[in-house]
């Protein structure tokens, strides 16, 4: 009998939704358990097998000094390491703190802010360690996660295209909500993977999969403003959500802050 590779699933600052995508696999979960030894996955089982691990899946962002240290140890114990979700790939919704003063936040939220030890920023896992593959999405698509694991097990390239959501719309036969309805849509700058869920229901994409490769956020923003009548606040909301700290979205959102200042 061949020895099965050892899998570990790690959580950092996150909502657990992406780990749930793995549990949500249901039908494939048994098949997966037959191909890989699920050695550490606290969300699923209290069984904890010590490292090293062949494959580590990391969810969440780095928001504390302890997390910054822990991710180093995980890297040292992992042969291959992939990150899943918007938190791990760009800092997540909690990276909104990167644009503000976190001390002010804690003083407003907690009765005893002196007990809160947190970093000024929420950062992507790849800002701290070398990452072998980044799977974007908030939450990730479970079929894509299985594809990545399957590619790892079979030593091949994962079929996870970095192109726009528009490609998914066109392959599905969706009507473009921007052109036909005048609905602002983030699809042209957003990474594919969700299967174009929102445009399939006649809503604009809100960019939960983060930037696609080579995104032209400035041109899309310009069209929203000049042709679709979007204001700065709408644009800011769309670029500052779960992928706010992804470099392409962060840079673009700062231009709206500057414009707001100019207008005032």
């Amino acid at each position: 009998m061949k020895t099965m590779p050892k899998l570990a699933v790690w959580k950092f600052t996150s909502c657990d939704g992406c780990q749930l995508s793995l549990l949500d696999c249901e039908d494939e979960l048994l098949l997966l358990a037959g191909q890989i030894d699920i050695a550490y996955f606290m969300e699923a089982s209290s069984r904890q097998v010590d490292g090293p691990y062949d494959l580590s899946i990391v969810e969440g962002s780095i928001t504390t000094a302890d997390e910054a240290e822990r991710i180093q140890k995980i890297r040292q114990q992992s042969h291959t390491l992939i990150t899943i979700g918007a938190c791990a790939s760009s800092g997540g919704i909690q990276a909104l703190r990167n644009f503000a003063d976190v001390t002010e936040f804690t003083s407003l939220v907690y009765a005893h802010p002196e007990y809160i030890a947190t970093l000024k920023t929420s950062s992507a896992i790849s800002d701290h360690i070398r990452v072998d593959f980044v799977l974007q999405g908030c939450p990730i698509n479970k079929a894509q996660l299985l594809e990545v694991i399957s590619a790892y097990l079979n030593q091949r390239k994962p079929q996870i295209p970095a192109h726009s959501v528009c490609m998914e719309c066109k392959l599905k036969g969706n009507i473009c909500v921007m052109v036909a309805h005048g609905t602002p849509c983030m699809g042209p700058v957003t990474h594919a993977g969700c299967g174009a869920i929102c445009p399939s229901y006649n809503r604009g994409c809100y960019g939960c999969y983060g930037p696609k490769e080579n995104p032209n956020t400035a041109s899309l923003s310009h069209w929203w403003q000049t042709e679709l009548g979007s204001d700065n606040a709408t644009l800011l909301e769309n670029f500052r959500n779960m992928n706010a700290a992804a470099p392409a979205f962060a840079t673009q959102s700062l231009t709206f802050i500057e414009k707001n200042h100019e207008e005032k």
Partner: peptide, 25 residues
């Protein structure tokens, strides 16, 4: 935007790619 819409609505653009995938086993 490099979003590919023009090529996908074009009636003559013919490019395709082939994807090979395996299942978990």
């Amino acid at each position: 935007l490099s979003c590919a819409n023009c090529t996908l609505v074009c009636p003559t653009c013919f490019c395709s790619s082939v994807e090979d995938t395996t299942d978990l086993s």
